[in-house]
Design a protein around this nucleic acid. Structure first.
Length: 423
RNA sequence: GCGGAAUUGGUGAAGUGGUUAACACGGCGGAUUGUGGUUCCGUUAUGCAUCGGUUCGAUCCCGAUAUUCCGCCCCA
């Protein structure tokens, strides 16, 4: 048997990374008063069609769609925002204290060609904030991503921002683009001809035509913003300046999801060999999404970050998210398995991370195992120990050996291990 | 969806159309059966991604499939 293409198993170092990343993120989210959400990994297909957009590549060719046995049309979530928004509406959270800040972390599914840092089942951490039009929120979302990277020790990141304006500005711009490109259609690449029909904004993002004169002279979004949109974007930039966050305005960022309005951003890692997978995090504002999905008119801002890419970036920088948790104690028995077994249970109930020999290894091998596990103390249980109810406890670093009465064992270990062991 | 390159044990890998598939690491066992992390010895792939084909004979040649990696599209 083989794993399905584009999937992978999490164990060993990876599970360690996964757990530690979650702990780091959780602590950071608490600083922002963001609450953890977990929504189903599948939803009604139409949720994604309405939120992500019918014409986007994600919905067009990348979703995992299926019918369940009740005939429902379902889709494995290709991104996290739609589910959170659905939950926000369905649970009437718009009636609670706003803004509401939500974070999530879990698997997403996209039928894509796998490459390094790109999988069909991949993990995202995401953050969404509902209820405020304040450009401060746009800046805060960007700052969360930036702060997280900083916290992890990842420098060399680049923040690119742009604005798509409100609905009106965006439509004006769209019309302008269509007018502009119409006489030049034949000079564009096939992909762009296709984009012209489906999503003209994406033409700007084309890598193949980027050196084309036509592209360089194309109208810019910034010239089609109405007053309100312009003010909003200026304030976002001002707030970013206030936070001392470096960014570049890149007029070509349009994002591949239809729900964005106003601010959009991408955070790139400047890391060799990342190719087109160098965007570690991305997001933006979506003032119409909640309403489009059937809720009241409540604005939102958010971003998502791909775990696999982040972990790859950290690996390249030799940054570790934390050590593996190892047992503090290792019990070796000499023909006293039952006593050792009850002792392990006793120690665990008293809060000690304890491992023992289940393999009936010889004495020497047991020391090797204890060493490999990097335990702090080895407890030896033999005939002598059982008869006298005095255990042999050996410090694995100093090699000092102690004879400890059974009833004193816990207080002895408490004293020796001190803060090292958690209650 | 398109183009290209790979695929040998737990890991890193060498290798050949023909009896036993190097070497290293790791694992397990042992070197006076209650005290180790060094050293030494032994052992560790009935098999070279899978399925077919060519051949007297294929891990090595050919084809298909699968997976991985790289590029494009797109995205986190």
């Amino acid at each position: 048997m083989q794993k399905v293409k584009g999937t992978y198993d999490i164990f060993g170092d990876k599970s360690n990374d996964m757990i530690n990343f979650r702990l780091i993120v959780q602590a950071l989210m608490d600083k922002y008063n963001a609450k953890y959400f977990e929504t189903p990994i599948f939803e009604y297909s139409k949720l994604f069609h309405r939120s992500v957009g019918e014409t986007t590549d994600i919905v067009n060719k990348e979703t995992y769609d299926f019918k369940d046995r009740g005939g429902r049309d379902l889709t494995l979530r290709p991104e996290g925002t739609a589910g959170i928004v659905r939950s926000f509406i369905e649970n009437k959270l718009y009636a609670s204290n706003l803004p509401l800040k939500a974070w999530y972390m879990g698997p997403m599914f996209r039928y894509e060609r796998p490459q390094s840092g790109r999988f069909r089942q991949f993990y995202q951490f995401g953050y969404e904030c509902f209820g405020s039009f304040n450009p401060m929120m746009d800046a805060e979302v960007i700052s969360i991503a930036v702060n997280l990277f900083k916290l992890l020790g990842l420098d060399n990141i680049k923040v690119n921002i742009n604005t798509l304006g409100d609905f009106e500005s965006r439509e004006n711009y769209r019309t302008a683009l269509l007018d502009y490109f119409k006489p030049h259609l034949e000079e564009l690449c096939d992909d762009c001809k296709n984009r012209y029909e489906k999503n003209p904004l994406r033409i700007l993002d084309c890598k193949r035509d980027s050196e084309n004169e036509i592209m360089k002279n194309a109208p810019k979004m910034i010239d089609y913003l109405n007053e309100e949109s312009k003010i909003h974007f200026d304030k976002v930039k001002k707030f970013l300046d206030d936070l001392d966050i470096k960014y570049e305005v890149n007029h070509k960022i349009v994002r591949g999801l239809d729900y964005y309005t106003h601010t959009v951003f991408e955070i790139e890692a400047d890391i060799e060999g990342f190719g087109s997978q160098n965007v570690l995090a991305a997001g933006g504002r979506y003032n119409n999404l909640v309403q489009n999905i059937g809720g009241p008119s409540v604005p939102g801002v958010g971003f998502a970050l791909g775990l696999e890419r982040l972990l790859l970036a950290l690996e390249k920088k030799n940054i570790s998210l934390g050590e593996e948790v190892n047992p503090d104690l290792y019990i070796i028995s000499i023909d006293q398995d039952d006593k050792a077994f009850s002792l392990s249970n006793y120690l665990r109930l008293n809060g000690f991370n304890t491992e023992m020999d289940y393999m009936r290894r010889n004495f020497k091998s047991n020391f090797k195992v204890a060493d490999r596990l990097n335990v702090k103390y080895i407890i030896i249980v033999g005939e002598e120990e059982v008869n006298k109810k005095i255990l042999t406890v050996k410090d694995n670093n100093t090699k000092d050996e102690y004879k400890v009465k059974m009833e004193d064992l816990i207080s002895f270990l408490d004293k020796k291990l001190g803060d090292n062991h958690e209650d």
